[in-house]
Nucleic acid binder design. Sequence first.
DNA 1: CAAACTGGTTTGTATTTCAAACCAAAAAGG
DNA 2: CCTTTTTGGTTTGAAATACAAACCAGTTTG
Lengths: 101, 101
Amino acid sequence: MPADTRSLAELDRLIHEPARLALTAILSVVESADFLYLQRETGLTKGNLSSHLAKLEEAGYVAIEKTYRGRIPLTLVRLTGAGAKAYKAYRARFKKFLEKA
Amino acid sequence: MPADTRSLAELDRLIHEPARLALTAILSVVESADFLYLQRETGLTKGNLSSHLAKLEEAGYVAIEKTYRGRIPLTLVRLTGAGAKAYKAYRARFKKFLEKA
DNA sequence: CAAACTGGTTTGTATTTCAAACCAAAAAGG
DNA sequence: CCTTTTTGGTTTGAAATACAAACCAGTTTG
């Protein structure tokens, strides 16, 4: 019997997107990160990073705080409880899928 | 140091899509499957199954053979060598990602 | 022989994604 | 100073995706 592929349909698409998966993975281990750090780490363009972050924020998966380092803007991002939970669930589902094939 | 999230950008998007990942996973263990079997197994509509299969075929990941069972049409699908290779690579990458976080 | 069912494909629309253009503030150069 | 460049982003278009609904040819059923 083939793997339970039905469970794949339930994957959280918001996290599944590779760019956002990368972001979520990073944020799950750093407590908080700024915009440029995330850009360097993921290799995304500023535009794409900005819009992916906006989506994650809209979903309540990250909280974005716009502040200043001295006088230059600093955008800080951290995973929310909901974001951490969703990421954990995503990983668990995917891991299960990978195991049984 | 956060996980190597750069590697996620290299995931094969064609396989990454959940519907096609499900199809590929099934085909990786069955040698050959017909259209309706794949539909039942994945829960996709006929339309979506048809177009996802078309994409996989276009990429050379599956071979589709249209034949007949008696007088009613029968569409048989099997993974090609390239498809099997791509699927294997996808799994390896993802597994690696899951392991180091 | 008309209606419904099989086994699909095509079409239309709504989302998504990416890249390129844009923008305001700050720093650097002449 | 005043222009130019750089920093730290956001907004805007255009292209690709994905999904659902409509369609279609052939077959069986009433």
